[in-house]
Write a protein that binds this DNA or RNA. Structure first.
Lengths: 124, 124
DNA sequence: GTCGTTGCAAAGCCTTTGCAGGGAA
DNA sequence: TTCCCTGCAAAGGCTTTGCAACGAC
């Protein structure tokens, strides 16, 4: 299907390009409205869905914070949730022994890891 | 606050005692209705909340399957989601190097790990 | 008899969908 | 001009809440 370039979609992409961490819908909508103030939530939802389908974004289901989105192409990594500022940070690398955890007879295809605690700015 | 022992609450607890894996609301309601057929969803939600507050249950937010509940007191463990039968199994032990993953300046308080793939019964 | 609990229905969130008008190509 | 996309409103899931009747103690 042919896609058109709209100012709304560009605004949403711009929001992600300015961010180095996963964003929730609330954050995306409010940051997007600073670029296009008429931006509607349903437009954001529709574009997020398209951008995920096109591989430009990844959807994350965070256990505590719900659905979030981040730019794709960052390789395998995990997430840290600061309980104080409620931001999610990306953790480079992976420290999980998948094989050790997999029960006999099971086949593991992938995994997700979420850490939580206090980020550097909030640990005081 | 004083709590009363009702047949509905006992039925819900019975459902968990018969299960060795986390259950979703749908499963809890339908299994509970086999014991008390008038059991209402809102009653289940209310009792699950109470049982979590009382420490009898743990609430899990699974990235793919949403909210699930499991009996508490099983120690630190993680979960395996079979993409075929959609059941969640408990994985004894932990194979995560939390320290290695934590960025400098951050304080990690805990973590969650979710594996996914095929269980022994579904791997064919 | 009290007052916590239940079932039912209604209301709240978050997300998706229908529709007519608007804008990209 | 075409027809995809947007904004608005309505509708869907899941979960919570209000309320009168019920039932544990």
């Amino acid at each position: 299907m042919i896609r058109r370039t709209t100012s709304q979609k560009k605004a949403i992409q711009e929001v992600f390009q300015k961010s180095d961490r996963p964003l929730g819908i609330e954050e995306i909508v409010s940051a997007g409205r600073q670029i296009i103030d008429s931006l509607d939530q349903s437009t954001v939802y529709r574009n997020l869905k398209l951008l995920v389908e096109q591989g430009w974004l990844l959807k994350i289901s965070h256990p505590a914070l719900g659905t979030m989105y981040e730019r794709s192409g960052k390789g395998h990594h995990h997430h840290f949730h600061c309980r104080f500022c409620n931001k999610v940070f990306e953790l480079p690398g992976c420290a999980l022994n998948e094989e050790k955890l997999t029960p006999a007879g099971f086949v593991t295809e992938g995994h997700e890891v979420f850490l939580f605690g206090a980020c550097a700015s909030c640990k005081n």
